[in-house]
């Protein structure tokens, strides 16, 4: 390679590497701010300031959803597998909201450790499949359980 071209190439690569490292360090320093939501573990550890508008995210605990019969108030728990936090929300939940689904809620943590949400968003995972497949999976799951139970009897 022509020495002049080689020099130009090296300069560009060095500049790119330098800026890359700078951006990398910046993003690392801002890690907490770039995260969209706090996990229930972070809330349990007291990393979340009380009475400040933040986002909380996690999976809705199966069997935890309670709806108030006289209003739109819904109470449910979310988990990240380690800790759980109770969320209260008054409003229309998104279509994809179900138990076991990932959600992100915006709101404030009150003194009792209950998260009062003003907005609930459903988080979608990376899996896509036709309804028959999920049906078959559920069926297989049930059959497996029955087999287990009958084996136990």
């Amino acid at each position: 390679m022509h020495p002049q071209r080689k020099q130009r190439l090296l300069i560009i690569l060095f500049v790119l590497a330098g800026i890359g490292i700078a951006v990398g360090l910046m993003l690392y320093a801002l890690k907490e701010n770039i995260n969209l939501f706090y996990t229930p573990t972070q809330m349990a550890n007291g990393e979340v300031p009380a009475d400040r508008l933040v986002r909380a995210g996690g999976l809705v605990v199966v069997g935890s959803l309670q709806r108030d019969p006289n209003s739109l108030l819904a109470t449910f728990k979310v988990t990240d597998g380690v800790a759980e936090v109770t969320i209260q929300y008054s409003g229309i939940l998104p279509d994809l909201f179900r138990e076991g689904q990932g959600i992100v809620a915006m709101g404030k943590l009150n003194a009792q450790g209950v998260f009062i949400a003003s907005e609930v968003l459903a988080k979608h995972d990376e899996k896509y499949m036709p309804p028959e497949v999920t049906h078959a999976l559920e069926q297989a799951h049930k059959d497996g359980k029955q087999d287990l139970e009958s084996a136990r009897d």
Binding site: L36, T39, K123, D125, E126, K127, Y128
Partner: peptide, 21 residues
């Protein structure tokens, strides 16, 4: 992958089977 996001992770990757029917 680096941060908590609302957007889901990649469905198609070069290394793994796609998580799609």
């Amino acid at each position: 992958e680096w941060w908590n996001t609302l957007h889901q992770p990649a469905t198609i990757t070069l290394t793994k089977k796609p998580t799609m029917a």
